[in-house]
Design a protein around this nucleic acid. Structure first.
Lengths: 296, 296
DNA sequence: CGAATAGTGTCTGTAAGACAATATTCT
DNA sequence: AGAATATTGTCTTACAGACACTATTCG
């Protein structure tokens, strides 16, 4: 089966509810250079303007690489997003966020994860609701009046076996094809959300292993920000927050000084609580936990 | 008619969609001391813990005043929230956020504003989507499976004619009664959202007139933060951002030095764009503008 | 003058960022 | 030694907050 990704066909009964997902994946950091045929890619439109300089890629085919070159010549890992090609009329042929219908009796997260599985077998390190769209003007011919959008983060290690199925393809965030509906805006919004969130949450540490070097952690930040960070300053900042602590071990990875390993330190409830528990915001790792009931 | 506030009764066809609103209103700044009968108030539960010290009120009846006293004796204006009493079984008798059903063919904002009008004739200075709840576990007996929550801000001047209808009552945010569902969490979430948002948006300046003194503006901040701010530092901060500029006029309001008037300066698109346009996030003032289409 | 609010000046601490310099490993 | 990354050290600037002090009005 290929994806049930897009809209299902129902008649008129009150607002259908669709759930879509913006999936942000860290590409492998080694410059493997997987190249997909660039045939149907279309004109790439950079989503993030000033952040990526000239959106250069090594191959130039527009889809392959997982790193980008910034204006000063440095190379940074780049986030990638799986999109599905629309096979129905509104925006037929354009690319769109993976999504599906909300089944009654199921949670929103369940629907989001199902949509996520329609494009990748990987499970997200993080899943959070982004926004709900409900304008009746969406009657471009499509159906669901209300669309609940989630965004997910997928770590680097597991992002190695992308599943490039029939109508699914992964795009670097700075080289997106023409998108259906307002999905380009949605992706932009998701990116700003991640970049803000990374500052006051632990999502970055979830994208590395339980033990990691500060370089690895910094690479996560760089991928999300889309630019190089100063290594010394990054180190100090991380250590000063007390979010990470050294394990005492070191990791040798090449012809250079080995790096110390660190682990994430759970929130020391110091009482100053930067951000009180949000309702139903956070879902960790694999399955389908979480609750946050609500009626009315 | 009293409010169509709560759930409407339908049968089984796929998820109903409800829309609720957290309405945050600045109480009048003069200590008028409107006193409602405290009969059915129930035990007040402070939503914001550390921010309000001892949640003291002048009268002690728990609902009347619009100011609170902080731990150091200063007095600050307090936000108030209109709630409706539930007349149906799940959580019968408890207080809940005003809400209503989403009518097909209408925008989410339209439903939110309608719900807002069910408790107050005032129109919001600001309306923004907060979160969408969709847990099937909400089958406490209520119906709508999916609940889209908005939050609204209402300015000080118009907040003078609160409409205390049949089953509607206004509560200070630091003295909320027992709430239905997880509405207490939702209100907390709304508060943290406002407090964050006030930092990088212009919502505060919308809650004062087109011309205002820095004291007035500071009062808005203090109401939202729930604590006193240092006047000299606040002044410097506001002026340094370039968000406000002096009109050249002054306003005399008592036996003391008159204050300079300022006006809000529209965003100087400096290109550094702190926060790229979010999809369908912002609605100004009265009617029902705004769009941000989306399908799928 | 006294009360009350508006506004200025200073000082301190913290945090971010630029950037030089040192340390450690492998080849 | 040389390449490459890790780590430490300084220095500068910006900004938030505490707080003393001055200014202007009315009664």
């Amino acid at each position: 089966m290929h994806m049930s990704a897009n809209v299902s066909e129902r008649a008129k009964e009150p607002p259908n509810i669709g759930v879509s997902v913006v999936i942000l994946a860290l590409g492998p950091s080694d410059l493997d250079g997987r190249t997909n045929d660039p045939s149907t890619t279309g004109t790439a439109s950079a989503v993030t303007d000033s952040l990526y300089a000239a959106s250069t890629t090594e191959t130039g085919n527009g889809v392959g690489r997982t790193t980008s070159r910034t204006h000063n010549g440095d190379t940074v890992p780049t986030l990638r997003i799986p999109l599905v090609r629309r096979v129905r009329q509104p925006f037929l042929g354009d690319w769109a966020l993976p999504g599906g219908d909300l089944q009654s009796g199921r949670s929103l997260e369940f629907a989001a994860e199902k949509a996520l599985r329609s494009t990748t077998s990987l499970h997200p390190q993080y899943l959070e609701q982004l926004y709900t769209f409900g304008d009746p003007s969406r009657s471009h011919g499509g159906l669901p009046m209300v669309s609940i959008v989630y965004w997910a983060l997928i770590g680097e290690t597991e992002a190695k076996d992308f599943r490039e199925a029939q109508n699914v393809r992964w795009f670097p965030v700075n080289q997106l094809p023409p998108l259906a509906f307002d999905h380009k805006d949605i992706i932009e919004y998701a990116l700003t959300r991640v970049r803000n969130k990374i500052e006051y949450s632990d999502i970055a540490t979830r994208l590395v292993g339980s033990e990691f070097t500060l370089s690895q952690l910094r690479n996560v930040y760089e991928a999300i920000y889309g630019r190089k960070l100063d290594a010394p300053n990054f180190r100090r900042r991380m250590l000063s927050t007390g979010m990470v602590e050294p394990t005492g071990e070191k990791l040798a990875r090449g012809a250079h000084r080995p790096a110390s390993l660190y682990r994430y330190v759970a929130h020391t409830g110091t009482g100053k609580s930067g951000s009180p528990g949000k309702p139903g915001t956070i879902v960790i790792a694999g399955t389908t936990p979480q609750s946050a009931a609500s009626g009315q």
